[in-house]
Design a binder for these strands. Structure first.
Length: 114
DNA sequence: CGTGTGACTCAGT
DNA sequence: GACTGAGCCACAC
């Protein structure tokens, strides 16, 4: 019951967290994608800032930079990489094989699942 | 209410 | 592939 004291639950911040939480294991999304899914395409930068304070409960390691690059992770990129690898994400050098792991909300996954 | 900031992105060199 | 410059946005101070 959101009383007046509750967060507005309408802020971009809350939306981003909700989207990131929906990212399934073994899948990755770029900051720009998250921003777009949150309703603010182009706010990739803002997403990064929000992620920095998302706290636990949010698989921030599944959010990467564009082109499959790891991007940042509070100075722990290697940890981000490890977490993704632990989920079965394939890497191509320093980049994630987005061609096989880029998450698609409402995608045609059954078509490519084969 | 103006300014600064950064876990971003794109295009050019 | 690496570096630079410019654009963009939400949030903290």
């Amino acid at each position: 019951m959101r009383q007046s004291g509750d967060v507005d639950a309408d802020t971009f911040r809350t939306r981003v967290l909700a989207v990131v939480r929906r990212i399934p294991p073994g899948r990755v999304v770029s900051y720009g994608e998250v921003a777009a899914l949150a309703g603010r395409p182009g706010a990739a930068r803002a997403v990064g800032n929000i992620m920095s304070g998302c706290g636990p409960g949010v698989p921030a390691h599944r959010v990467i930079a564009a082109g499959g690059r790891l991007g940042g992770y509070g100075g722990h990129e290697h940890l981000k990489r490890s977490l993704l690898m632990a989920e079965g994400v394939a890497f191509r050098g320093r980049r994630v094989d987005i061609g096989a792991h880029q998450w698609r909300a409402r995608s045609t996954r059954k078509l490519v699942d084969g």
